[in-house]
Amino acid sequence: MITVTDATKDWGDFRALDGVSLDVPSGSLTALLGPSGSGKSTLLRAIAGLETLDSGRIEIGGVDVTDVPPQRRGIGFVFQHYAAFRHMTVRDNVGFGLSIRKVAKPTIHSRVDELLELVGLGGLQDRYPAQLSGGQRQRMALARALAIQPEVMLLDEPFGALDAKVRAELRDWLRHLHDEVHVTTILVTHDQEEALDVADHIAVLNHGRLEQVGNPTDLYDHPANSFVMGFLGSVSRLGHTLVRPQHIELRKLAPGEEPVVTDWSAAKITERAVVERVTHLGFETRVELVTLPSGDRFTAALTRKNANELDLAVGDSVLATADRDTEHATFDDWSI
């Protein structure tokens, strides 16, 4: 268990962390999610001891480590750009932490072999980092961090420097590795898809503040505010309400038909709109609409089947409705 209490950090005039308190459960894979400048990396580096807080406390496994140097925190840290020791072989890179701990050479040897097997780099012991691909270097960095059997693994945008395909592969692989190794892991990312995909806990940060903590479905379905809702998925604005595009229902109006709205309760949002564009994206159909009479634009996402039944064409008049209840995330936003 990692407990951060009231963490605050200023960079000159910029407040990177503004009173963040967070519990990270033991054995979890928690993502710190937020846009750049939200303080997520600063928080991670503070947990590692690579950054000192201006105020606040950090506990790892019940021990206050606020003033403990990184060397004695028992953490494994993985950097976005690998931070490989370029002049050492893969074997020496991975064995570095153990050699610092004065572990006997044969023990290091076999432990490194084991770890490299675990991260899928078996047989590459004698290569230099320059001879590895980006994905392999990051696996090596993970093995290097795991070698010291850390209580906590901290990953700072670990897939950020990799191309999309390798990123997706490594993400799956990390998930499986975590199921196998079960060390408490915190992952920093600005990619909501990555967070939803990999993490069992997500903490959303914005402007140095913690916006919401929860499991991925909770955050997606019950965002605490419009920022979290917007950051964890696409959002459409229907009137003054933010809704998920796939929660908008469309009914086609016959030419000249005046819609009879039966439910004017606060639980239903209703707008008249005209279809501006229809895009088929394989499994779903995206419909771009303009509300009447205000002229606001919004997007609805329909299933392919639903779209085929409606058979919408550009210029069609529709009635767009969305439910406002606990099943559907909605937010009132009067900023426009």
């Binding site: 610092i100 701990r101 290097r144």
Partner: peptide
């Protein structure tokens, strides 16, 4: 020089001189 390599070494337990 990649200062992150030094930070990585610190997180692995190495002190200044090492």
């Amino acid at each position: 020089l990649d200062t992150e390599a030094e930070q990585a070494a610190a997180s692995l337990g190495a002190h200044g001189w090492t």
